[in-house]
Design a protein around this nucleic acid. Sequence first.
DNA 1: CGACTAGTTGAGGCCAGTCAATGTTGGTGG
DNA 2: CCACCAACATTGACTGGCCTCAACTAGTCG
Lengths: 254, 254
Amino acid sequence: MSAVAGGKGTGVPVSPNIIPFHEPKTHCGSCTLQELCVPFGLDPAAMRRLDELISYRAPVKKRETLYRPGETFNGLFAIRLGSFKTLLLTEDGREQIIGYRIAGEILGLDGIGSDRYTCEVVALEDSQVCFLPFKELDQLALEVPPLRRNLFRLMSRDLCRDQDMMLLLGSRSAEERLALFLLNLAERYQTRGYSARELVLRMTREEIASFLGLKLETVSRLFSSLQEEGLIQVQGRAIKLLDPWGLKQVVERS
Amino acid sequence: MSAVAGGKGTGVPVSPNIIPFHEPKTHCGSCTLQELCVPFGLDPAAMRRLDELISYRAPVKKRETLYRPGETFNGLFAIRLGSFKTLLLTEDGREQIIGYRIAGEILGLDGIGSDRYTCEVVALEDSQVCFLPFKELDQLALEVPPLRRNLFRLMSRDLCRDQDMMLLLGSRSAEERLALFLLNLAERYQTRGYSARELVLRMTREEIASFLGLKLETVSRLFSSLQEEGLIQVQGRAIKLLDPWGLKQVVERS
DNA sequence: CGACTAGTTGAGGCCAGTCAATGTTGGTGG
DNA sequence: CCACCAACATTGACTGGCCTCAACTAGTCG
């Protein structure tokens, strides 16, 4: 069963660990991620109304599933803390990871169209999400144009990200894929105030491989060879980008 | 310069070949594709208002570009007739085809978020599109909930399609990719009232290959081998699916 | 008719996959 | 706190699927 989204698609949140609202810093207005997230650019009044509509903020433990394909769509999740993988299963049971989402990003957009979520979302570490019930969100968006705009922007951002990913999977070598993966990740962490040079991966080699359309041994070998080239430094899941410009060259050399 | 979307991102439509509105069958209400398209499920009054906001219906010639990355986003295009490829360019100039859109489908959603279109769209044959200016569409959607719903549905549909494509590119063999491509195409043509068994490709082998993350020779070889297996019959771009069930088996055999 | 584009087919090479052995890390319980 | 175990990661040897290069055919348009 899902950790938060409600069992068996009933739409009723059942997490026993909902974070009390009187805790400090559990409001959009004081959230450090607001400019990446749904509330971006809203005036204080609108922000307060958005806050009221968020029906709960809840922790999701490592490896727990946030939602699964087929569960009824009832809203979006904003990642407050932590990271998630999104994946699809092939008919023969293998999993293909199609996304990797970190704090400030939105989960659940895949369900907007069909009333059902279509992919599976699993926490890669202990995380926290804010739940935005869609009906109410849609209503509020009617009155608040910037919110409406943000919703479109978020969907469009996902569309473009997926298209970039198709470009990557369709026409890049294994080495280019890994280099792009690292650069992209570093950039996203940087916008969140973390170092642009050092990052700690939350995924296993196998998960990275699945995401990049490769095998885990290939990923492992590539980490080693990029390290030998002096471009990165690898210590398990801690990666240092020693030469970001060199990494970009790896991508751009045709 | 773009064929329709306006030169140099000015947002002013400049096509010299706009189809007069007094032509028969140029209204949503009488369009055979309405149930696949934006107007799905709208009541007659709303449908009329949607019709009024469509600022033009225009032909796009084979190989003409509908819009390019960087041009200002000013609205969506509904395909009335024909087909298009959507593509991204790598920094070294190769093109990666990321989508293949036919009548009843929507183009331009990639631009909603950023005020600029992000991919390039090119007609594969002489085609026709309806232009929906986004500002007005967004306004109308405020008053017409089913229209709002349709917009979300369309974006979400694209998201899921792209995700399926990532699954295909990330974890399927060349033969599986081609079989899936043919089955998917046949299904889409079938919903539009065409035969589920016979289809005429509008793409070259090279375009199919790019879309599937392969090389043209590989695609050509696969057409031949699927034909030898008795699953399809190939005559240039005319393909007959002799054994759709067998094709599905090709995909599902792990 | 010739030039051009699209498509097919063959021979050979290489990148990434597969199989397998070994090393490392981190969580758990004694 | 440390020993143990399982999961994760690395590395090597070999294989194979798809790519590359190349020759040839068929259809199209001026």
